[in-house]
Design a protein around this nucleic acid. Structure first.
Lengths: 200, 200
DNA sequence: GTCTATAGCGAGATAGAC
DNA sequence: GTCTATCTCGCTATAGAC
């Protein structure tokens, strides 16, 4: 948590935008989280939109670093892709509560017709390009690799959306167990990946 | 468009909530769309949350009617399930612009910790139960039928989320063609369905 | 049932002292 | 660099005339 005030603002805004949404999060919320006054914001940022831009930049940097870490650690492209798929399990509690940080942000910005939507979509592009590269390392042509990448992205987004919609409420009456659903779909994606690795 | 004032309010609110989001849509927006004054709302509804409830009820009724129509028209469960899958194509322009009406609403209400989230999630339950029934008509056991239903729901949600995130912006630079992506994924879901119909 | 007028609140943003 | 005080605006909601 140590760092400059600016960094703490961006870090807290990041978390609050994820939990509450961008529009629903006020300066008062962020100020309370950081422990500074509202007026102090405008020394560091000219507007709320500038904070959003900084949050997106932070997420891009964090995502980039995570993908590079996976590149270094996993020796096999299928192992690395499995790292991606398993984010759903590693973060399942948060996903059930707040959805996917990328998908929910782009969804909100699309509704607001917000100019930063295209920047937020670059978070998807980061994953997409990285995934496509892994499939190319598995011997697939560029077009097919990109199709596979988008397919996996879409499936993980769908799991996150449903888990979020049902998650907190439906444990009792309809028998929807969010954790089991996520794990079953993750297993399905891994099986799909194995079929790809085996050459269709 | 004919109907009582109350019905017109709910109908216009339905469209605006879809296009702009619930929180981002003001009474002034709805009033302008309907052509009445802001104050007149409170004769018909006690609060904005009551309008949301009415919108969800309307969507539940419309969805229920659509599913019953599919039940009457398609003679074969696989034909009916294909009706569901092909909503993505029939509504692809709207989905690229505003996402899935159900997924984006539940996503927003989850961020707002809104009490109507569980009601909105019933829209998913409607599809889920209907799809599970079709799979059972295809000879699948209840548990498996429900897993298939959730799987199909999740995949269509993922397609909608990605199409919405990339859709309007990415036609130029990154070579993402929203329409082609949607059609490719729809074809993939239909192929999956055929494998299920053939008995795995 | 529909209107105008307005209350009350919280939001983003600004000014200026320290 | 951080604070307090304040401005302005748009929102939900209310009051009361017609």
């Amino acid at each position: 948590m140590a760092g400059t005030t600016r960094e703490e603002i961006v870090s807290e805004a990041d978390g609050l935008f994820y939990q509450q949404g961008f529009e629903h999060t006020s300066f008062a919320d962020i100020a309370a989280a950081v422990g500074i006054s509202r007026g102090n914001f405008y020394y560091h940022f000219k507007s709320k939109d500038e904070i959003l831009s900084a949050v997106i930049e932070l997420r891009l940097a964090n995502t980039h670093a995570m993908l590079e870490r996976w590149d270094r650690e996993g020796g096999d492209p299928t192992v690395r892709i499995r790292c991606f798929i398993r984010i759903l399990i590693a973060n399942r509690a948060k996903i059930i509560r707040h959805g996917c940080p990328v998908g929910t942000l782009t969804g909100e910005l699309a509704k607001l017709a917000h100019p930063s939507l295209s920047d937020a979509a670059r978070l998807f592009t980061l994953f997409r390009d990285w995934l496509a590269r892994q499939f190319m390392l598995m011997g697939r042509a560029q077009d097919e690799a990109d199709e596979f990448a988008l397919h996996l992205l879409a499936r993980s987004q769908g799991v996150a959306t449903l888990a979020n919609a049902f998650g907190d409420t439906d444990f009792s009456d309809t028998g929807f167990a969010g954790t089991e659903f996520v794990e079953r779909e993750v297993a399905g994606m891994c099986a799909w990946l194995d079929r790809i690795a085996a050459g269709n």
